[in-house]
Amino acid sequence: MDQLLNDFSPGLFFMQAIILLILILLMRKFAWKPILNSLQDREDGIQDALKSAEEARKEMQNLQADNERILNEARAERDGMLKEARELKENLISEAKSEAKSEADKIVAQAQATIASEKKAAIAELKNQVAELSIEIAEKVVRKELSSKDKQLELVESMLGDVTLN
């Protein structure tokens, strides 16, 4: 201790204090402040970059999800449209079919009706003609048969014979 106190040089202490003080001030101004600021800036920059990268990734994910959703929607819409179209087509076809069928049925029915009425008319006419012809024939026959007096008498006789007087 004694020797240490003897070794202690106040002059060196004083010089050291001044040098250290000046050095601290100079270093603060010219070195530490800019260095620490740049380091801080750089670290902040890295943090920001990481954060924005993360955000971009999230956004990308969102976008992708969005895309997926839109695609799905579009697909569903297309499917719906296709389905609708198919239904429409089927409807149209079936409608057309049924209409055609009913039309055809109607035509057939009309045709049948016409045929039936024609047939009836034809039958009626045939009946008339047959009746006229039979009358003519019958007239002719009758005329011929009853051309003589005795034949007329005979007929009257037979007829009278048929008529049993009761």
């Binding site: 100079l26 270093m27 010219f30 740049s38």
Partner: peptide
Amino acid sequence: MLLAGLLMLLLFSALAR
């Protein structure tokens, strides 16, 4: 001490620059 101080000033102001 002056040498060390000078060295520090040179090195670290170079880093700062």
